[in-house]
Write a protein that binds this DNA or RNA. Structure first.
Length: 468
RNA sequence: GGCGCAGUAGCCAAGUGGUAAGGCAUGGGUCUGCAACACCCUGAUUCACCGGUUCAAAUCCGGUCUGCGCCUCCA
């Protein structure tokens, strides 16, 4: 399995620190509002990475935080006249709902920054003791960036370029030793949540939390650290500096970053008015469509979002779902139980698609290529399977298709829904009407059912129905 | 100014040295009471442009044009 590592800017063979196990940390959202579809990309992408690792037999310890102390949260709390904790708790709950709807599995651990303050104080103290950090008069603690010689190794920047850059990175009123130094701990302002510390009553800077949580739940050395590409600098660069200066060990072996999601070819932003929450998309589409859409491009490429693209994704996903439902429908009505010799060969032939799928995923999680293997498999099923197929063949093909889709987090099996007696009666009545060539009544019944969200399809194998 | 990414059919998108996957959309056909599903056929003599290397280039090298990202909170 090859993984593109931002550190080396190359695809590298994935070798875990400990055989059979993967320690993975993904930077999670700051919970001050409903998550947007840009937040959704890394969630879906890295959930898929996790699923594939598990598919390959790894035991994955997957940690993803919620940043629940931050300026934006405090601002929101002030606006609503409630506590910061109430804001963050509310949006953590909402985020978990969205994740479930996107079929993103909960992490092994979802730590909260506010629950890990002790660890942060400890790490900051160690950094101060080692000379990598210093406190100034008002109690702010800064990281001494230039002291960490490898600073810039992830983002491939050199410090002098940063200082000579166009942008004026100096902020007035700061008393840092060097403009590159970043905050580890800062004093509280009036009315803000705070914790006691040796330096001042205050709260942690943003970067320190991830270093601490990764260390606590995964250890000083981890396999994979992931997040959006915008986090490379400065967030991940700073994490490396903190963790490696503190622990004296390589922090993460592989750094994986997903590309940005644009909307109508523009960066998503509230001021542009092209800002969508996952919740909004969920009102119009099953969020599986969003997931399918996101995985149809490579995770490192920028991805454009638009209404047309979602429609195309919806139609494409529908094709896979139809094939799965067809297999299930045929299976339900199969006459023969066991596979014939010929069928065994058909099933054996489908192994090729599994291999193509795995080859694609092994190559830096090429989900676009993996999906093409699924489509080829779908066509193979559609052309090789009839109402004469045995239950065993149909079950085998379905399981195989389901196994691949499960890696992508796509759910084939719709919930077992019990048809109301009324609906069953209507279907039967329609069949009778059709026999009598009373098509007006037949169409009328189909429309009635459509109104109830039931789509009927008259196939060679009989009437099929599905939920809209 | 520094660092980096991208340009493949109407659209989306793989492919990074061996002669262009897959999907959506379009048009035609099979099936069918109709619709839907499915299947068959329909598409790039060509991969932004110009040079070069090679028996062979979308893939490597040089240049040009265009779009984008990061360097500041950001997934």
């Amino acid at each position: 399995m090859k993984v593109y590592n931002t550190l080396s800017r190359q695809k590298e063979e994935f070798v875990p620190l400990e055989a059979g196990k993967v320690k993975m940390y993904v930077c999670g959202p700051t919970v001050y509002n409903l998550i947007h579809i840009g937040n959704a990309r890394p969630m879906m992408v890295f959930d898929t990475v996790r699923r594939y690792m598990e598919y390959k037999g790894f035991e994955v310890n997957f940690v993803s935080n919620f940043t629940d102390v931050d300026d934006k949260i405090i601002k929101k709390a002030v606006e609503e006249g409630i506590s910061a904790q109430e804001v963050s708790q509310r949006y953590i709950e909402e985020c978990k709902k969205d994740m479930a709807a996107m079929n993103v599995r909960p992490a092994t651990t979802h730590p909260l920054a506010t629950q890990e303050i002790g660890g942060m104080l400890e790490m900051i103290s160690t950094l101060v003791d080692k000379g990598f950090a210093y406190a100034v008069e008002d109690g702010t603690v800064y990281f001494r960036t230039r002291k960490f010689k490898e600073y810039g190794k992830l983002s491939h920047k050199n410090l002098d370029d940063l200082q000579a850059g166009h942008r004026d990175i100096k902020v007035t009123g700061e008393d840092k030793e060097d403009s590159l130094d970043f905050v580890l701990w800062k004093p509280k302002k009036e009315g803000e949540p705070y914790w006691e510390s040796p330096w001042c009553n205050g709260r942690p800077g943003w970067h320190i939390e991830c270093s601490v949580m990764a260390k606590k739940y995964l250890g000083e050395e981890i396999d994979i650290h992931a997040g959006g590409e915008d986090l490379i600098f400065p967030h991940h660069e700073n994490e490396i500096a903190q963790s490696e200066a503190c622990n004296g060990k390589i922090f993460a072996k592989y750094w994986i970053h997903n590309g940005f999601l644009n909307i109508d070819n523009k960066k998503m932003s509230k001021s542009e008015g092209n800002f969508f929450t996952v919740r909004e998309i969920g009102e119009k589409y099953d969020l599986q469509v969003l997931r399918f859409f996101m995985l149809s491009a490579h995770y490192r490429s920028p991805l454009n979002f638009s209404a047309d693209l979602m429609e195309a994704a919806k139609n494409g996903l529908e094709r896979i779902l139809n094939a799965a439902q067809n297999l299930q429908h045929l299976q339900k009505n199969a006459v023969a139980d066991m596979m014939t010799q010929e069928e065994a060969e058909i099933f054996a032939g489908s192994q090729a698609f599994v291999e193509k799928f795995e080859r694609a995923m092994d190559d830096d999680f090429n989900t676009a290529d993996a999906i093409s293997a699924v489509f080829e498999f779908v066509k193979y099923c559609n052309t090789n399977v009839t109402e004469k197929g045995s239950r065993e063949l149909l079950e085998n093909l379905y399981q195989r298709l389901d196994g691949l889709c499960d890696v992508l987090g796509l759910i084939l099996r719709k919930e077992e829904e019990i048809l109301d007696e009324e609906i069953e009666k209507l279907i039967a009545e329609r069949q009778a009407a059709r026999k009598e060539k009373n098509f007006a009544r037949a169409d009328e019944i189909r429309d009635i059912l459509l109104g109830k969200g039931i789509i009927l399809e008259d196939t060679r194998e009989g009437v099929k129905w599905k939920r809209a």
